[in-house]
Design a protein around this nucleic acid. Structure first.
Lengths: 136, 136
DNA sequence: GTTGTTGCTCTCTTTTTGAGACCAGCACTA
DNA sequence: TAGTGCTGGTCTCAAAAAGAGAGCAACAAC
């Protein structure tokens, strides 16, 4: 009983830190960010922000995505309500993907990051080179 | 020669689309985004934006990260120049991580997304529930 | 009738993550 | 002085995610 008091108190303290910081589990930011942060999500959102695209167009636009990941990423984006999927009954049925209002609103926010990236990627690349050079 | 003309023209067209769109390979946004978009990067950046943290503090702050991923994510962030790592010669040597100027500047951009997430995560959750319900 | 187009799915391999043991060095405590 | 804890890691192995590529059904054009 005596020896465990300390570690119990410590555990409570740790727990308090987590809850006090807003409860990182079930955290809004985590909810949203985890799904935008897929390897391909940002790229596809950018494309769709420009205009609606068909499946095949997206595949050609992002040449190094696999068909499997394109399907899946689009479905995830659709699930979160950013993208809407519309099937047209053309002869080989075609599918068009476009941003929803929610998606567009989110894109306005993420756009800041994209602008930053365009302006500062050189510094990031430089930092990377320097870091790699410092590996002994 | 005759039959290949069509597909060659098609290939050129596809190539033009890619290049015309800014060359998605070796693209600045891809360079930057791919490394911020790790599962834990955003969370750690948020924490470090608040104040510098020690390794163990971060581990307690984000309880469901493994030590291995914490080490690795911090190193990646450091490699890209967002985070600086400082070792203090205390008795059990302690290590402090903090945002660099570059990191802080990037954080200002990504912060918009975090704000959006806080304000709109309910809609995302709702979309998700609706999508899942529609699965036949 | 061969070839091409559409948007997928299925399988297989490789890469990334996660869980957890282990490590060295020092401090405190019994 | 032997045991225990704290520091920030690394190493190994299992599980999950991603990539490569084949297959597919239905129709169109040549």
């Amino acid at each position: 009983m005596d020896t465990t008091v300390v570690s119990a108190r410590r555990k409570i303290e740790i727990y308090r830190v987590n809850v006090g910081n807003g409860g990182l589990d079930n955290c809004p930011i985590r909810t949203v960010v985890q799904n935008i942060s897929g390897k391909w999500s940002a790229l596809l959102l950018m494309a769709l922000a420009e205009r609606p695209y068909r499946f095949g167009e997206l595949r050609r636009l992002v040449p190094d995505i696999s068909q499997r990941m394109l399907t899946q990423t689009l479905r995830d984006l659709q699930r979160d309500g950013y993208v809407s999927r519309e099937v047209f009954p053309t002869k080989p049925p075609s599918v068009e993907y476009s941003l929803t209002d929610l998606g567009r609103s989110m894109y306005d926010a993420i756009e800041h990051l994209f602008h930053w990236a365009e302006n500062n990627h050189q510094q990031v690349r430089a930092a990377r080179v320097e870091f790699d050079a410092a590996e002994d």
